[in-house]
Design a protein around this nucleic acid. Structure first.
Length: 500
RNA sequence: GAGCCGUUAGCUCAGCCGGCAGAGCAUCUCCCUUUUAAGGAGAGGGUCGUUGGUUCGAAUCCAACACGGCUCACCA
């Protein structure tokens, strides 16, 4: 694909430029219009049709032309506004010959405002009888709209690359593309409403950070000229939010972009929206209750009930969700016990028996996680909490009392996907320092994504942090789940693409 | 990063055992005053992703590259 300025040598563009010139020659400048005061959206005209038809009241409606059918001395035009389509009817006798002659300079894609009463055609379609109209803008490039009859579409934009790169066209042309994107907006809105309703403060923390911590991932690098300092784009929200908990903000959340310098796939976008929530004086059980309530709230807001369908399977989010420990699940679905993971060599052997490549695995916990994902995760279809994660996977989670090999951490799984991750946060600065040191050793052993040693964060913990529960949810994945679409790109307006 | 698949008119797609580049929609001209995937008559529109190669001849066969999709790897 190439992006070029519209050329007059392009036939379709040249025709539109000629029509623009013709309109201007008649004293009608499509780009001179600044406003149109509509009385109704298309949907409102349909909803209130009976009353509008009875009173004979004139309506004012505006939108983009998406279909034109001319019939000599009359024409039917469909216009599209934010609420949907509506048909309008131009008749020579109604608008007069001079105005009617302007129709020949209209194209699909142009903007139109019309005034007139409503009626129903012989075939029953609700229609506006145009008395006067204004041209509100002209399209110089053709709009790839197809034919449409009810829900059915023909010839609409299918090319996936063009749909992502020119999402505005996708949104005009493909109603089925629009729905998941609108659901995502609703998910974000309802999450915010839910948390604010429970007294959480929404905060903003730095995107540009000297150290990108709080998760195991590779960051993007950038440079601040005035400071002459290398900075990282954040990979998580965690460590700054916990600094705020230290600072007496007891209930905070942030729902914003983080950036991970990794591959792109239907389930990964380099920048994605992460929700993190922290609440002082609660623990992972508190975070479980919060997670259940949050997902339940959003599901009910979207669907009016506690069930929805994903990939043909009905999901029921009614709390409480079952809690199972990771080792318990591993034994049930793979027949593996703690003995199988007693040493790095034994753990690798267990992984290889399941056909997993183990060359790059440096920690027992990493192998357990990989084996779990392969053997157990696909089976976790209905919502469930998985608890007791290995210590070396969870350098920011409190150790499990009496079993310091494990942590007070859970993940929530739905439809075979991880949708939330939470724990009782480490608030012992000495423990946290040791964990960072352990991560440093792992990095030196070849684990590129190990957490960085963050001395500034340790200083904050040394000033004292209350016991705190923390929760993270990938909003794009949650939205894709709730919108029942297979790819994150279906809930991201402009997914990352290689530059053209 | 690897494997597989795709790229032909503005849009959706045929054509791919090598032999003059096609259809529907859209566009343009003409007819048509309640049509609706409107209809009727006619016309224009192409660097077949790019660059090489094989061949008398390449959209078609081969190679490299570009972009995209899926799967895998990494991760959430």
């Amino acid at each position: 694909m190439s992006v070029e300025q519209p050329q007059e040598t392009d036939e379709l563009v040249a025709q539109r430029l000629a029509k623009l010139a013709s309109l201007r020659a008649r004293g009608v400048d499509p780009f001179a219009a600044e406003r149109f005061d509509r009385t109704h959206l298309a949907e409102e005209v349909r909803e209130r049709f009976d009353a509008l038809a009875e009173s004979g009241e004139k309506v004012a409606v505006c939108g983009r032309i998406v279909a034109i059918r001319t019939m000599g001395k009359a024409a039917f035009v469909h216009i599209l506004d934010a609420s949907g389509r509506i048909q309008v009817y131009f008749k020579l006798d109604n608008v007069g010959p001079e105005a009617f002659s302007l129709l020949e300079f209209f194209d699909v894609g142009d903007f139109l405002g019309i005034h007139g009463p409503v009626f129903r055609t012989r075939t029953g379609e609700i229609t506006i009888q145009v008395q006067t109209f204004d041209i509100l803008g002209k399209a110089l490039r053709p709009l790839p709209v197809g034919k449409q009859k009810g829900e059915e579409q023909w010839y609409a934009l299918q090319d996936v690359e063009q749909r992502y790169r020119q999402r505005y066209l996708d949104l005009i042309v493909n109603p089925r593309a629009r729905e998941p994107l609108l659901k995502r907006i609703q998910v974000v809105s309802e999450v915010r409403r839910f948390l604010e309703g429970r007294g959480f403060l929404e905060v903003e923390t730095p995107v540009l950070q000297p150290l990108a911590g709080g998760a195991a991932a590779r960051p993007f690098l950038t440079h601040h000229n005035a400071l002459d300092a290398d900075l990282h784009l954040r990979i998580s929200l965690e460590l700054y939010l916990k600094r705020l908990v230290v600072g007496n903000l007891e209930k905070v959340f942030e729902m914003s972009k983080v950036f991970r310098n990794e591959g792109i796939s239907p389930r990964h976008n380099p920048e994605y929206t992460l929700l993190e929530v922290y609440e002082a004086y609660t623990d992972l059980e508190g975070m479980m209750a919060l997670t259940e309530s949050l997902v339940d709230h959003v599901t009910r807001a979207l669907y009016g009930g506690r069930k929805f369908t994903y990939a043909g399977t009905e999901i029921d989010v009614t709390p409480p969700w079952p809690r199972r420990s990771m080792m318990e699940l591993l034994e049930a679905c793979a027949g593996l016990t703690r003995d199988d993971f007693a040493t790095l060599a034994r753990a690798r052997a267990a992984g290889e028996r399941l056909g997993l490549p183990m060359e790059k695995e440096h920690t027992i916990g990493g192998i357990i996680d990989k084996v779990f994902e392969k053997a157990c995760q696909p089976g976790l279809v209905q919502p469930a909490f998985v608890t007791d994660f290995p210590l070396d996977l969870s350098p920011l989670a409190k150790k499990k009392p009496g079993d310091p090999w494990l942590t007070r951490r859970f993940e929530a799984h739905i439809a075979g996907q991880e949708i939330a991750n939470a724990f009782s946060e480490v608030n012992d600065p000495i423990d946290q320092r040791q964990r960072f040191e352990e991560q440093r050793r792992m990095r030196e052993a070849g684990e590129e994504d190990a957490h960085p040693y963050d001395a500034d964060f340790l200083r904050a913990l040394e000033h004292g942090m209350p016991p705190t529960g923390g929760l993270g949810i990938g909003i794009d994945r949650l939205a894709a789940l709730l919108a029942d679409v297979p790819s994150l790109r279906d809930v991201i307006f402009f997914p990352q693409m290689r530059p053209e």
